[in-house]
């Protein structure tokens, strides 16, 4: 029988890469909690998913150019993410949104990325771009994640009110003359957050730690700021649990973390649903 210390603390105590991963996931949980909550509130989960995959072709081109260097992967991913966000805005600005088009688009983006990486790289490279790896988080990647996360949180803090109002009553925001392109700024933040996540989670899963903790927090019916805080907490818990699971079970870390976040979402949805049914029976407000 393992002691709690050996189970929970020792992996981080003995292994530098586990500590680096922990710090990285802490920063990511914060940005993902903030951005993910706004995404869920804006009912833009699908857009987040599409943008997550849109990072792929650019990252692949970065890979072709410089091999598996984090900086070039990120730069490429950032470029194609921004390009797709701009394209999507251009298209959806002209007519009603078009789910089938978005889905078609992300399938093409994903396939294009895989083909490009597989063309010059190995299967290991493909897996790495698709699912990420904690081993990719070296000191430089850590600094990069920390800087991007800080920028995102600061920008959201500064633009909090227009972002929040634009989410539930966009006509009011435009009518009072808030002329800044908050929508575009928000999409840019989503792309930034996805690129920050992508080293650790890969393009397939980067949107998971963004949406799942936020969706789980949303179940509890809190205000916007409290939802963000709870989503961050959930993200953090899922990260630690997933990391330990992957360490002890010798499993890939990204999927383990996303599974843990999915479990939290399941528990949250089930708990709040049964409370809603139970509350009237015991004479409490739902």
């Amino acid at each position: 029988m393992m002691s709690a210390h050996a189970l929970i603390v020792e992996p981080f105590e003995t292994l530098a890469f586990m500590r680096a991963a922990l710090v990285a996931f802490l920063a990511l949980a914060l940005t993902n909690g903030v951005i993910g909550t706004l995404l869920v509130l804006r009912r833009m989960s699908l857009d987040g998913d599409v943008l997550g995959h849109a990072v792929m072709p650019g990252a692949a081109i970065g890979f072709l150019y410089a091999g598996p260097s984090p900086a070039w992967l990120s730069l490429g991913g950032l470029a194609s993410g921004f390009a797709v966000a701009a394209l999507a805005r251009l298209i959806t600005g002209e007519r009603a949104r078009h789910d089938a088009g978005l889905v078609a688009f992300y399938l093409v983006a994903l396939s294009l990325g895989v083909v490009l990486v597989a063309w010059r790289g190995s299967n290991v490279d493909v897996m790495r771009v698709l699912f990420g790896t904690v081993l990719a988080i070296d000191r430089r990647a850590l600094v990069q994640i920390a800087v991007v996360s800080s920028v995102i949180v600061l920008v959201v803090a500064a633009l909090y009110r227009p972002l929040a109002v634009g989410a539930f009553d966009p006509a009011f925001l435009r009518a009072v003359g808030a002329r800044a392109p908050y929508e575009a700024v928000f999409l840019a933040l989503v792309v930034l957050a996805l690129v920050a996540s992508f080293q650790a989670f890969g393009t397939l899963l980067a949107v998971g730690p963004m949406l799942l903790p936020a969706a789980a927090a949303r179940c509890w019916g809190l205000g916007v700021a409290a939802s963000m805080a709870l989503a961050t907490g959930f993200g953090l818990a899922a990260s630690v649990a997933g990391l330990l699971l992957s360490y002890h079970g010798n499993l890939p870390s990204g999927p383990a973390i996303v599974l843990a976040a999915g479990l939290l979402f399941g528990i949250s949805a089930a708990a709040t649903n049964s409370w809603r049914r139970l509350a009237p029976m015991i004479g409490r407000d739902a």
């Binding site: 509130l41 009912r43 989410a167 539930f168 009553d169 966009p170 006509a171 009011f172 019916g221 809190l222 205000g223 916007v224 939802s227």
Partner: peptide, 12 residues
């Protein structure tokens, strides 16, 4: 705006 344009699920 029309009521339908406002997202009532928003925690406000």
């Amino acid at each position: 705006p029309q009521l339908a344009a406002i997202d009532l699920d928003y925690p406000l």
